[in-house]
Design a protein around this nucleic acid. Structure first.
Lengths: 238, 238
DNA sequence: CGTCGTTTTGACCGCCTTCAACTATTGTGG
DNA sequence: CCACAATAGTTGAAGGCGGTCAAAACGACG
C-alpha cells in the first residue's frame, strides 16, 4: 500500500477541488459529452453503464466510497460510458489537467492512482468471468460477495449487514439477467437461508455458503494493496 | 495521441529490455506466481485468462502487437490472471521498478502508459457488454469486428483479410459459449456470406452486415487517442 | 500410418427469457 | 389525509437459445 508523506498530502490538499452532490438515479456524466474531470466517490454508490438498444442497460461497475469512477476523462478521448448515481452520492471533482500537473511534481500521486486503476481493471476482468461463465445464482452470489467485501473494506459493513441501495433492476443490469429472473434467484437465496435483502438493507447469514455458490475468491480485489489508498486523497481534499 | 520527443525516446531506449519468445499455447505468466515485469507484445497474439473449475476457461482479453498485456505486475499485488500465448509470440520485457523510475524522470512515458491502460479498460468494459447482453451470433460478430479493427490499426489487415490464429476454442473461451455452439455460429456466419474463416485466415466479406449483427461501434477502442501509441516504445526498445 | 487437436454433426434437455398480470411500496399533489 | 401515479417486487405459463453428451470427420505432423 502506497503511503503519502505529509508534504505530499498538503500539496494534494492544495489542489482546487469541487464538490458534487446528486440524487439517486441522476446522470453524473453522459457518454459522448466531452469533459475533463477526475472524480472520487465520497458517499453513496454510483455505476458506470452503457445503454443498449431495446431499452436494455449493462452496468459494468459499481463505485463505492473511495473509488474513482472515471479514471481520467479528457476531451480528446470521448467518454463511452454513462456515470449514474445508484443512490444519493457526493463526489469530489478535480480538473484532469491540473491533476496530471500534480502527478508530474508529485509522482507518488500518479502511482497511487495507477494502483487504484489496476484494481479497478482487475474487478472488471472478474465481471467478465461472472457474466461469461457463471449460472444465475452464481452470478448474483458472486456480485453480492464482492460488494459486501468492498463495502467492508471501507467500513460500511457491521456484522455482515449493510445498507444496500441497489434494486433488483440494478442487479439484473449488472449480471446480464432479466429482472424477473433476478427476483426468482433472490427468493432462492432467501429460501436457502443465505441472506436477507429488503428495504434497502442486506444481511448475509451464511457467508461461506454464498461465497461457495459464487466461487468467490477475493484475491482479485487486491485489498492489501489498495485498501483505503484513495482515502488519502479523500481526506486531503475533503 | 501522445508524442515523445527525441530526448525522451532515447532515454526510453536506454532502459534495460529483455526479449521473450514463446510458442503457441505456452504460459507466459501464471496467476499467483510473484513477478515484477512489464510486458509489451511485439509479434503474435497473447491472451489473459482465468481457469475455472470444470476445466472451463474465461479469456478476458486478446493482446495484439503493440498492446501491454499486464499493465504492471508487482510482488505485493498477486497476479490473478494467466497470460497465455495464442500464437507464437515475441514480447519485450522490462522490470517494473525500473519503468516506474523512468516514469518519474520522464513523466510523459507514464502518461503514455496511462493512455494505453485507459483503452484497455475500455475494451474490457465492452467485453462485459458482449458476454452480458448479446446473443451468440452477436457476441461472435462483435468480437471479430473488434479484433479486425484493432489488427487493422497496427497494419495487420489488408482488404479486410488477415492472419487469424485463434481457434474456435479460443473464441468460445472469450465469448462464454461452448465450442460446439461457436462452431454452429461460425457456420451460420459463413452461410450468410459474411466471412471466410479457415486455415488460420479470416476474410470479412460484409463488414457492414457483421458490424450490425454485433452492434459494433468502434468508439470504445479510442483509436484516435491510442493508435500506435505504444509503437513508440516498441520502436525504442527494439 | 497412427496420434492428437480441431472442426463438425445430431438428439435431447434445461436454464433463462418473454409476455402478461398482479401486488406492495413509495411519493406527490389536491 | 387520501387519491393517484410511479417504482419495486412478485407470480405463472410457454417457448427458445444455448448447453450437454456422444461420436464422427478432418487435418497436421511425427
Amino acid at each position: 500500500m502506497i503511503q503519502l508523506s505529509d508534504g505530499e498530502r498538503t500539496a494534494l490538499a492544495a489542489l482546487p477541488t469541487r464538490m458534487i452532490s446528486v440524487s439517486a438515479g441522476q446522470v453524473i456524466l453522459r457518454a459522448g459529452v466531452p469533459s475533463s474531470t477526475w472524480l472520487l466517490v465520497l458517499k453513496g454508490i454510483a455505476s458506470t453503464s452503457k445503454d443498449l438498444e431495446g431499452g436494455k442497460r449493462q452496468i459494468m461497475a459499481f463505485h463505492l466510497p473511495g473509488d474513482m469512477p472515471v479514471l481520467m476523462s479528457t476531451p480528446d478521448r470521448e467518454l463511452d460510458i454513462d456515470l449514474v448515481a445508484v443512490s444519493a452520492c457526493s463526489l469530489a471533482s478535480m480538473d484532469t489537467v491540473e491533476l496530471v500537473e500534480a502527478c508530474r511534481s508529485i509522482p507518488r500521486i500518479g502511482e497511487l492512482l495507477w494502483e487504484c486503476a489496476l484494481t479497478m481493471t482487475s474487478i472488471q476482468r472478474e465481471w467478465i468471468v461472472n457474466v461469461g461463465h457463471r449460472t444465475a445464482v452464481g452470478r448474483l452470489a458472486h456480485l453480492l460477495c464482492e460488494l459486501v467485501t468492498r463495502l467492508e473494506a471501507v467500513g460500511l459493513v457491521q456484522d455482515k449487514a449493510c445498507d444496500f441501495p441497489l434494486t433488483q433492476v440494478h442487479l439484473s443490469q449488472a449480471t446480464g439477467l432479466t429482472r424477473i429472473h433476478v427476483n426468482r434467484v433472490c427468493q432462492e437465496l432467501r429460501k436457502r437461508g443465505l441472506l436477507t435483502l429488503e428495504a434497502g438493507r442486506l444481511i448475509l447469514h451464511d457467508w461461506e455458503g454464498l461465497a461457495q455458490l459464487g466461487q468467490f475468491d477475493p484475491t482479485y480485489l487486491h485489498l492489501p494493496a489498495t485498501r483505503g489508498t484513495l482515502a488519502w486523497i479523500g481526506d486531503a481534499v475533503a
